[in-house]
């Protein structure tokens, strides 16, 4: 198995090609530009389509078109670009089109800056565009996972005919790590009952209009059931030093990497700190978090690079049995292990 040192952003593109992604439509934006750049270098080598779209809006609509034709298709962007894509994403969800979107989060709101933040959580995890829909959201925290979870995103997108996000921040996108390239995907789902291919048998309709109120309600109920199935079947988490943990930290993406360091240092100092990392943000690990109070722990600290977007979901999952504290850094600042341990000490007296 080939092992290569590469940026998280590149790893997502390798994963896409290995997953059989046939087309990449994107617009450059820091800190996600290497995704478009590496796609422009790699996709043509495989006879696959790379097109630099005129705008983020065009890019997601190109994704809509390719997905409607049954292709595995991807785009990549960052905060402001994702905001622009929201209408198109709503159309993709409304027309049940599988596609993969990589969001390398940067600082906001507005132009913000290009440092790492996690402030797209709400706009990606909660749906973001108009209407009742959810995105499947996978949150890698390493270059290897950028590859692996991008591949999984294609699989889940097809399985549920729904947009799937790979959501991470500038640190994970920009850093290099060793990546073991997996085997390419060889089997693809049959889309012949809905994809438009320009043939007699594929004269289908890709559409999100339901003029009749009852029809639209029925369609929304169908989507609702789909999201319930995703919630039931697809939750992924990583637990580190959780068996005997007295204090639990929760974080995803690069926050979770820092938390791992904090846990290691805490353990060296006899503090029983553990890490609970949601790998899927939708579906959110509601049941797993709801069980945390049963372990008789002293406290839960959610660490995020946003002002309490993740902690809202943690607290909803806890159903009032406990409340998670919050430690956040913003504006491109990444929390350090030392800061987190100081906060743990201050909150829980250890």
């Amino acid at each position: 198995m080939p092992r290569m040192l590469m940026k998280g952003n590149y790893a997502a593109v390798y994963g896409a090609i290995l997953a059989g992604c046939e087309a990449y439509y994107g617009y450059p934006i820091t800190p996600a530009s290497e995704i478009a750049e590496s796609a422009s270098a790699l996709f043509p080598k495989f006879g696959r389509t790379f097109l630099q779209a005129e705008s983020e809006v065009a890019a997601i609509n190109m994704v809509y078109g390719a997905a409607g034709c049954g292709q595995r298709v991807m785009t990549g962007s960052s905060g402001p670009g994702i905001s622009l894509k929201q209408e198109g994403l709503s159309y993709c969800a409304g027309s049940a089109l599988p596609c993969v979107i990589v969001d390398i989060m940067r600082g906001g709101p507005g132009l913000g800056n290009i440092g790492p933040e996690q402030s797209d959580y709400n706009q990606v995890v909660k749906g973001g565009g108009h209407g009742n829909y959810r995105n499947i959201v996978l949150a890698p925290n390493s270059a290897q996972e950028m590859c692996d979870l991008t591949m999984l995103a294609f699989e889940l997108a097809d399985k549920y005919r729904n947009p799937a996000f790979v959501l991470t921040d500038g640190v994970i996108g920009q850093m290099m790590e060793a990546v073991d390239l997996p085997e390419p995907v060889s089997e693809f789902p049959d889309k012949s009952d809905w994809a438009v291919k320009g043939t007699a048998e594929s004269r289908h309709l890709i559409n999100s209009i339901y003029l009749d109120h009852d029809d639209l309600e029925r369609w929304n109920r169908h989507l609702e059931k789909k999201y319930a199935a995703i919630q039931k079947n697809e939750v992924l988490v990583e637990e580190y030093m959780m068996d005997d943990a007295e204090i639990v930290t929760i974080g995803y993406g690069s926050s979770s990497r820092v938390l791992r360091s904090a846990v290691d240092i805490a353990r060296e100092n006899g503090i029983k700190l553990g890490l609970f990392r949601p790998i899927t943000l939708f579906p959110f690990p509601v049941d797993e978090i709801a069980k945390l109070p049963e372990k008789g722990i002293k406290g839960i600290l959610t660490v995020e690079m946003s002002t309490g977007q993740l902690v809202d979901d943690v607290n909803l999952a806890l159903k009032g049995k406990m409340f998670s504290d919050l430690y956040s850094r913003l504006g491109g600042n990444v929390p350090s292990a030392a800061e987190i341990l100081e906060k743990v000490s201050e909150l829980y007296g250890v």
């Binding site: 087309a23 439509y25 389509t49 097109l51 779209a53 005129e54 809006v57 065009a58 890019a59 609509n61 190109m62 994704v63 809509y64 078109g65 390719a66 409607g68 034709c69 298709v73 209408e87 198109g88 159309y91 027309s95 438009v196 291919k197 320009g198 594929s202 004269r203 289908h204 309709l205 890709i206 559409n207 999100s208 209009i209």
Partner: peptide, 19 residues
């Protein structure tokens, strides 16, 4: 074959459909 699309985006969608 038919794709109904967002306001103004038909040429972008058509570009990908054609490819």
């Amino acid at each position: 074959g038919n794709l109904q699309v967002a306001h103004g985006r038909a040429p972008a969608v058509a570009s990908a459909v054609s490819r």
